[in-house]
Design a protein around this nucleic acid. Structure first.
Lengths: 147, 147
DNA sequence: TTGATCATGATAATCGTTATCATTTTCGGG
DNA sequence: CCCGAAAATGATAACGATTATCATGATCAA
């Protein structure tokens, strides 16, 4: 048990910026960590609300942004106009494949693609800093159901 | 001069759905085609407004959606909360690389990546129907300027 | 020309997100 | 332990992009 917990990291991150760990931030972090899912601020707000009626949704938005800056969460944009967050600490980079019918989504990685992206960027004179890749398709289950 | 023009295609598309070609739709299509750029509805609205003060922005939004369904335009989502449209007819599929500093963007393709995406989807049981890939980086010019 | 249908423009409404701001909480000295 | 400065909170207003509504105007086929 010598590894830093997410909470440690967050506290440290906050302190470095002259900010404080609070009850609300703790609650939000816990709820976020407890849920292995891509969460929108709205969804997370709903979850936390069940435990603490008094929490404000602005605080959820604010804290998720902070978690993201602290490297504990990562913003995911499925392109439906809703921002989602996923765990980042201890979770490797990955992309997503999304079913257009049932919206099931999976995390995928392909080292060769990552490598080719790097080269592609270089070819156009860019130093690559990141990328977003979303694959859209129909999953096996939905294909079975019909068509 | 036997090839179908974009206008022909649009008229046909509209007719097939019991819709009509109108003055406004024509203006919007023309302005869209004249501009070789990723255009937001707002930008296109601005351009057209210079020629015809009376056009409504709702019409621009509506028409761009239609052009997109007709296969003449393609929606591009750079992830900044603004929808953009690019030419689709006679323009091959491509992805984008975007400079994080100056927002310059280029169209890129890599056949090997496309191929690997296909395989990756299959591996997870998906039939691939499409994808979005955005590479983010710093372009040569911006790197020269500083850092 | 004449309805019937479709399209338009103005505007209100929506939705996710962010800003504002008065109030409350936190925390390090005294 | 208490105080006051600084930071955080929650309620709510504001925002920007987009969509819905709806009365009015244009279009088309007979």
């Amino acid at each position: 048990m010598t590894g830093k917990t997410e909470k440690d990291i967050f506290v440290r991150f906050l302190a470095d910026r002259g900010m404080r760990m609070t009850n609300q931030r703790g609650l939000i972090l816990d709820a976020f960590l407890r849920t292995e899912k891509h969460l929108s601020p709205e969804e997370l707000y709903g979850l936390i609300r069940r435990k603490d009626r008094s929490i404000g949704q602005a605080t959820v938005y604010r804290t998720l942004k902070l978690l993201s800056e602290a490297g504990l969460a990562r913003e995911v944009d499925f392109g439906d106009g809703v921002l989602r967050y996923e765990h980042s600490y201890g979770h490797e980079h990955h992309d997503h494949i999304i079913c257009e019918r049932c919206h099931r989504n999976m995390e995928v990685v392909d080292e060769r693609i990552e490598e080719l992206q790097e080269r592609l960027a270089k070819k156009y004179g860019f130093r690559l800093t990141g990328h977003k890749m979303y694959l859209y398709g129909i999953c096996r289950e939905c294909r079975k159901k019909q068509g």
